[in-house]
């Protein structure tokens, strides 16, 4: 099976360690959600996976071959970066949409010009407009077009729906699933709009402080996480020895998020309220605890 593996990847900027000993395997034919708080290291990780940034240590392998300076491997990877052209930001900012897409078409061997044209029309983007004149949503559309039309086996999108209206977000998710179903490509989507995208993610990768906190099937992760509430003493007794997050106490009532490990269960008939949670709740419990 085609894989993209990063082993022992670390990235340092001076004393600051942005990624710490990251080990990750991406398999062909999956949609991964890459989630983490701002500054967690998501974009840096995607940049290193696609050889857009060099790692301080470790290496990325595509089917066992190093990705770095390897054209054969790079032909199978596309990281469509979030575009942030600044006024007077040089020639890229001054590029027209059609020129940007044309430049991309030169570089991706599997470029689907028909799909790029179709998406351009669907998004009602004016190909003659300069990137610097586009709104945030329109820039997201351009990055989506590059990602989809590249036809790369491993395609990474960084905040693809930022600034898009709800209709276009819905369209993007549908188109993504359609493409995935037809081509069996791998997509890694980094996003902060977790709940909306959760249904699309087959697996979720959570990055926290430069480390992979977990990589798991989305349904399984959500299925083993619950919000338990009731009398404080009863709750404490019921969750003893279990992995708990976000404890909240109001008077004698207490609520806590519980992540069950394999073989663990919650006691039945304990008089507690046990509610399912969504991916966003799981993420907040795992990554936002210190701030709440």
């Amino acid at each position: 099976m085609e894989t993209l593996v990063c082993s022992n990847i670390a990235k340092k900027y001076g004393e600051k360690e942005v990624l710490k000993d990251v080990n990750l395997t991406l398999e062909k034919g999956k949609i991964y959600g890459l989630i983490g708080r701002n500054g967690a290291g998501k974009t840096t990780l995607l940049s290193i996976l696609s050889a857009q940034n060099p790692a301080s240590t470790g290496e990325v392998l595509w089917n066992g071959e190093p990705v770095w300076e390897n054209q054969r491997a790079l032909n199978h990877i596309c990281f469509s970066r979030e575009l942030t052209p600044q006024p007077n930001g040089g020639s890229t900012a001054e590029m027209k949409v059609r020129d940007y897409l044309r430049a991309a078409s030169f570089y991706y061997p599997g470029w689907d010009a028909q799909m790029a044209k179709e998406l351009l029309e669907k998004f009602e983007l004016d190909p003659k407009r300069k990137l610097v004149k586009l709104s945030k949503g329109m820039l997201s559309m351009v990055t989506i077009i590059v990602a989809m039309a590249s036809k790369a086996d491993f395609t990474f999108l960084d905040e693809p729906v930022a600034g898009l209206d709800v209709v276009m977000r819905e369209y993007f998710y549908r188109r993504l699933i359609e493409e995935y179903t037809q081509t069996n490509r791998t997509f890694v989507i980094s996003t902060h709009i977790i709940e909306e995208a959760a249904e699309v993610f087959e697996e979720v990768i959570i990055v926290k402080h430069g480390e992979i906190l977990l990589k798991e099937n989305t349904a399984e992760l959500v299925g083993r996480t619950f919000r338990v509430s009731g009398l404080a003493e009863t709750v404490d007794e019921a969750v003893k020895g279990l992995e708990t997050h976000l404890p909240e106490q109001i008077g004698r009532s207490k609520g806590v998020t519980v992540c069950l490990r394999e073989g663990e269960t919650l006691p039945e008939d304990s008089g507690l309220t046990v509610q399912p949670v969504n991916l966003q709740n799981v993420f907040v419990a795992l990554c936002g605890e210190e701030q709440l």
């Binding site: 857009q52 300076e69 990281f79 020639s91 030169f106 570089y107 991706y108 790369a152």
Partner: peptide, 19 residues
């Protein structure tokens, strides 16, 4: 004027650095 952006863009599209 064009070199820096061109280098960034072509690497971001999967171009090799030496290339």
């Amino acid at each position: 004027s064009y070199g820096k952006n061109g280098i960034g863009l072509t690497i971001s599209f999967g171009g090799k650095r030496s290339e």
